[in-house]
Structure formats: C-alpha cells, structure tokens
C-alpha cells in the first residue's frame, strides 16, 4: 500500500474536520489522483459536494480538471477549493 498525504484548506478542511491533512492508503497498483478522490469520497462522504468543486495540486502545480495522474507518497498533494483571495 502507498500512503498519500493530502493537505486540506478552507471549507474542505472544515468539512473533513481532521486537521491540516489526511492520509489516504491506496493499493500500489492504483496510485492515481482519480483513485485518491474516490477513496476520499468513500472515507469522508460529507465532503463529496464540496470536493466536486475543488482542483488538486501536485507539488504546487494545479492539475487540470478531470486529468488523472500517477502519484507517489513523496508528492505533495493538496485539495484546492475555489479560491477567494484578494
């Protein structure tokens, strides 16, 4: 199994209510961002609605919506809700 650490912010952090990050275990053969999202939705069903409005960032770069990418335990993965800075 591979453990992926996911950084949480703003509304996603509030809804999941587990602190600054969660760790999700993925089978080594299924270590992709789509599977990560699937596991998060299964483990934290309360976040499903807000998660559908979020983008993922891998190592400080946005992933395109619906892009699926292979990830490793060393990647910095973050869930980015719609931003509202400024």
């Amino acid at each position: 199994m591979t453990i992926i650490k996911c950084l949480l912010f703003a509304k996603v952090k509030e809804v999941i209510n587990k602190g600054e990050y969660i760790e999700i275990e993925l089978p080594d053969t299924e270590c992709t961002t789509n599977n990560l999202l699937k596991h998060i939705n299964e483990q934290y069903p309360q976040v499903k609605d807000v998660l559908s409005t979020c983008l993922l960032a891998i190592n400080l770069e946005f992933l395109k919506r619906d892009e699926d990418r292979v990830i490793q335990s060393t990647d910095e993965v973050a869930i980015i809700p719609p931003v509202s800075g400024g």
Binding site: F9, E14, T53, L55, F62, P82, V83, S84, G85, G86
Partner: peptide, 24 residues
C-alpha cells in the same frame, strides 16, 4: 488562481467565499 481563501463572519453565521472566476 492564487490558493488563498476568505471567510466572512456575519452576526448569524459564516461562509467561505469563492471568487466566481475561479470556481472552475
């Protein structure tokens, strides 16, 4: 695009805002 979020507090609650152009 910058990953920064604003939360507004009102007398009867609070809400995380989303800039419409960034709501994806």
């Amino acid at each position: 695009i910058a990953p920064i979020w604003k939360k507004e507090y009102y007398s009867d609650g609070s809400i995380w805002k989303g800039n419409c152009e960034s709501c994806h």
